[in-house]
Each structure stands twice: as C-alpha cells, then as structure tokens.
Design a binder for these strands. Structure first.
Lengths: 342, 342
DNA sequence: CTGAAAGCGCTTACAG
DNA sequence: CTGAAAGCGCTTACAG
C-alpha cells in the first residue's frame, strides 16, 4: 500500500490538487460541499500529509530538540518529560539528545538539531562547556532557544532556572534552626554555576546567623554521586573534623555520607543532621529519609515550553521578541535526616 | 544570513547544481579537482543540506521514534538512553514520546510517528493497551518496529525482552536458599505479561523446592509503587499472616514493605528476607540495602538498536527480513535485605 | 469558487 | 566528466 498524496485524492474526486490542499486546510474560499467531500474521502483513506514536503513551503517542522547531560537522572528525566508533555499538547514532537557532559558532543548534537531544522532547542549546558559558539550559532540561525538549569549569561535568549543560592540558603538555615553550630558542605565542582550558587547560599546563611565560615568544612564532590559523598565523609572522619550539620550538593551525596556515618556508628540526625538536594526519589526511601530541597524538574520543563510558545507567538505576530528568565521556586522538604528536635 | 543551498554553491563556483550534489555525495563520476573545490567551499560556508528536501527523494529521515510509558523511571530512562547512544553512533536522532499507560495516547503517538516518516519505531506497549491495530499499521506501513520489554505475540517484528519468569525463579530460589519457608509475593497487576511471568517464576521455584504454594501469600500491587508495598505489608500484618520471605514486583514496592515492617519492629532480613526487582538506584541506598534483580535497561536499548540496524541492512540488500527475539540476561544482586546467614 | 503554475531544495536517470 | 530536466509532495499568489 503506497502512501496517498494530494494528487491521488484530486484524481479520485476529479478536482485539482490546489482545491484538495485548500479544503484540507479549511481555506474560506472553498465551497462547503467540496470541503466535505475532500475531508470525508481523506479520512476514509487515512490520508497523512507528507510533513517533509510541507516543510519545504511552511518552514515549520513541528519538531523540537532537547539536549541534556543524561536521561538517567531523576531531575533531567523530569524536565524532559515536562517538555514532552507540553510539546505534545501544542502539536510538537521532541528529539532528545544526551551530551554526557562533553563539550564536543554538545557541539555536534546542536549542529545536528540545526540541520534537522527544529523549531526550537532546549538545552542545559554541559558543565565542561567553555566555548559557546555553537549556541550563538543557534541564535544567529533564528532558531528559538531556551536554556534551563545550567545557563550562560552570554546568550540572548530565555532561561528557566532554579534560585540555587536561595535554595542553599534555605537548606543551611534549616540546619541552623535545628541547632547545628558547625555545618559542613559537600559542594559540587568549582565551575558549575549551580554549585557556586548553592555554596554562596550556604555561606550567606552562616553569615546571617552569626556562624563562622570554616573552609575546612567544605569539600568538593565533583560528580555529586553517592560514592563522592561516602568518600568526603570518610575524608572528614580521618581528618578528625567535627561537625554537627551537613548540607550536600545532591541526595545521592547525602546518602553516601550517611552510609559512611552509619558505618562509624555516628547517628543521623542526632549527631549530624543532613540535608541533601533535588528530592530524588530515593531521598524519601532511605533510612533515615533524607531532608532535601525540591526543585521540580517537571515544572522547569513545563515553563521552558511555555516560554518557547510565547516567543513563537511573538515571532508569528512579528512583534519584538522579549527574553525572559523564569525562576522556579524550590522548597525545603523536611524528613528524618535533619530533624533534631521533636 | 539565509541558509545556503546547492544552487548558491553552484552559482558561486560556476558549475551546475547536479555536479555540486554529486560532489558532496562523493559520486565517482566527478573530477577530483571539482570535488575538492565544492567540498572546500561548502565547508567554508558551513553548508548544511536540507534534510527535508533530501527526504523527498531518498525516503530516509534518519529519525527514529521511541514510545515509553514514562521517562521518569529508572528502567525506561536507561532503555531510552541506550537507544539514543547507539542511534547517535549510527547517525540517527530519536523522538521520545510518553504514552503514560494510556492506550488512546499510545495510538495517537504512534500515528504521529508514522506521519513524521520515522525510519523506525521502538515501543514498550502500555499495560492498558488491548487493541494493537495501531502497531499492525506500523508493520503494514513497512516501518521497522522493535518492541521491547512489554511485547505482544501478535506482532511480526523483532523483540527484546527480559526472561521475567527466570528472574522470578532466581529471586525466589535465593530466598529459599536463605532458609525461608513461607515466601510471600507482592506481584504486579493481573494483565501485564511481566507481572504474570515473575509470578510464574515464583511458583515454579516454590514447586521445585517442595514448598507449598499459598495463594493467601500473594497480593497485587497494581502500580508497583512504594505506597503499594507499604499497604500490602500492612494488609498482611492486619490479617495476621506470617511469612519469612518476600519477593516483590519492584524495588519501590520492596522499600515500601520494609518501611512498614520497620515501623512494626519486624526485622529485615532476620524476620523477613526481602528481594525486590529491577535494581533501581534507590535499592543500593536504602537501609537495609535491597537485594534485587538487575535488568539492564541500557543493554535493552543497545540491543533494540542493534536489531533495528540488522533489519535495515536486510532491507537495503533486499534480503528476506528475519525477526529476532533477544533475551537480555537478568541477574540477582544480593544485598542486605535478604542475607539471613552470614 | 476553482485550478494552472511556480517553487521549496534536493536526487538521479539520462544525454552529451 | 558535466549538466539540463524531471520529480519528490506540498503551498500559495494569481488568474479566471
């Protein structure tokens, strides 16, 4: 069974291709009876217009591209699902690509998306990316781009972010309110903006509450993994550092630290209260359940898609395009790992 | 800056469009010097051939579609990432769609993929899907389809599956070897094949080891969620059922059951040994860490993509297309929740 | 209200 | 080795 084309329909109904095309697109200058015939026949024959051919004229592919570091990650899979869900409602499909924290792959993937003529690109920039010429090319190419979570100040486009500094502040403040006096921080790498912001929030909270900042109490967990957390806790233990509160860059990091502390019979939260970050699914299921900061990846995806639609609408109307930075609120979720007082 | 076309290059170099096209595709009947000029100029000008226009002639979009119930799921995000990674190596991009366990949406999404003229469709059929006419349409349409994890016997195409029956057997056998005599099973719904198979493996293991099957010890956890597990454990507790082993349909279900048991001061594994399923990330991080069955979603994705490439190759060579069913091995991972003897 | 015709950007059988 | 021409399936400005 070969695919049906406008031509086939025109022949079958003895009218022109033009009329068939117009009828299907509900042009006002086609008679009601003709429209009806065309539409009924098309439906009966299960006609599917060829999207690639349409593109040649309309320049809209109705395809979006999203580039994330990885999908195997609670936060990012949520963002992507948020985008996919809203995209579907708006009649778009989404190409998903994983850059795996590699600048080189990110560049290659963005080029592929441009070549595919996607209508929009959603990206969370790899932590290792230094040169952003590939992203500037997207903008020069007039393709809508929405950057989320890991953004760059040097791109004129809309962004969706979490207020990581505030989140770091809230997490630390909570530990202080629980009575912690010496609060450690297992931070992310030195370069990612999110790691910097959470760290700055941590410092600000200490300062605002009259606690001294001790740089010995800060360690770097480059990958934010469970292993990282375990090792940092081990390192502190061997160094004989004493602390009664811990704020970590991620929930797995918190879980790793807790695993080490348990091994040494250090009680959580009694001896050390712990707050993680991101509200991974595992945070609610560990013992003790991990207090954390919830950043809804899903809402980020939804908001990113909304900003995309706004920009498309402005372009359609030939209005001036305005860029927005949406801040998705994050909130503290208190569980067992940080609850010192009853 | 408008997009460069073959025509622009032809004009710039004073040759025909035909020759430019051939030169770029490395046809043998173009002189070396011409080829060189064309290739150098194209590179300099950052020429990107229009894929939609090519499609009109070649009928290959180099786009694949994958339909999963949801991305926010450790197993499925792994499968999708496996597909994406191998697809990238082979020069394909992947449209990802979430059917959310709805038959209606699954039908709609598959139609969209066909309309987009994707070169292949990867799907894990929704648990709620009864009518598979939309999938038969894919095959009639001559589009390659690979079904994974949740397959249907009524589709003539390649499949990638886990041997769930064997996996259920292994999990149960392990509990028996740990000395359990009354082993409960929190199974999935009655319809999904994977739930049936794991259940049958459970029964077979009991039978092979001379343990009596007691249907009171089997409860249904329709969603395989943490809450389901908690509630089933609660139900058994209230019913006064005694058991010393538990095999659950998923790791969250196991985590939920353990949470309830802890609340009642029933020790895991000493009083009740527990084995979950799927090796979710959380399984390694709970206390006690959950013994489980590892089914590598990533490998399923990789294998699905390999089968796709095989079928494409057969079609290209006009060979007869052979359908395969690949079985990805699953393995038991023993952690604390099931380790009775030291 | 209807339709002939041009054109989107590419590929390829064919002629020279 | 090179190129004119047809055609993939659609859209739309234009003529009638």
């Amino acid at each position: 069974m070969n695919k049906l084309t406008l031509k086939d329909i025109a022949q079958a109904l003895n009218i022109s291709i033009t009329t068939v095309s117009k009828a299907l697109k509900d042009y006002p200058d086609v008679s009601w009876s003709t429209k009806k015939r065309v539409i009924e026949y098309s439906k009966k024959m299960n006609f599917k217009p060829n999207v690639q051919a349409s593109y040649l004229r309309t320049r809209e592919t109705k395809i979006l591209g999203v580039v994330v570091p990885t999908l195997i990650h609670y936060f990012f899979s949520n963002v992507v699902e948020g985008i996919i869900q809203k995209a579907e409602e708006a009649g778009y499909m989404v190409l998903v690509l994983c850059a795996d924290e590699s600048e080189e792959r990110e560049k290659k993937l963005v080029k592929q998306l441009l070549q595919q003529n996607v209508d929009g690109i959603f990206i969370s920039i790899s932590h290792k990316t230094r040169d952003i010429s590939h992203l500037k090319e997207v903008l020069e190419n007039q393709t809508v781009m929405i950057v989320f979570d890991r953004i760059s100040k040097f791109l004129k486009c809309s962004n969706v972010v979490i207020n990581d500094r505030e989140a770091g502040y809230i997490a630390t403040k909570h530990l202080i309110e629980q009575g912690c006096q010496r609060i450690a921080h297992f931070r992310g790498g030195l370069l990612p903006q999110i790691a910097i912001d959470r760290y700055l929030g941590y410092r600000k909270a200490l300062e605002d509450h009259g606690l001294e900042y001790d740089k010995l109490l800060v360690d770097i967990c480059e990958n934010g993994s469970e292993k990282d957390g375990y090792q940092s806790a081990q390192k502190f233990y061997r160094a004989g550092l004493s602390y009664d509160g811990l704020f970590t860059i991620s929930d797995p990091t918190a879980a790793g630290a807790i695993r080490f502390l348990h091994k040494k019979n250090i009680r959580v939260p009694e001896d050390i209260a712990v707050v993680g970050f991101s509200n991974w699914q595992l945070a609610a299921l560990t013992t003790p359940a991990i207090s954390t900061i919830d950043q809804s990846g899903f809402l980020i995806g939804v908001e990113a898609m909304r900003l995309f639609m706004v920009e498309m609408e402005q372009r359609r109307k030939k209005e001036e395009v305005t860029f927005n930075t949406s801040i998705i609120p994050s909130k503290l979720i208190v569980r067992e790992s940080s609850l010192k007082k009853k």
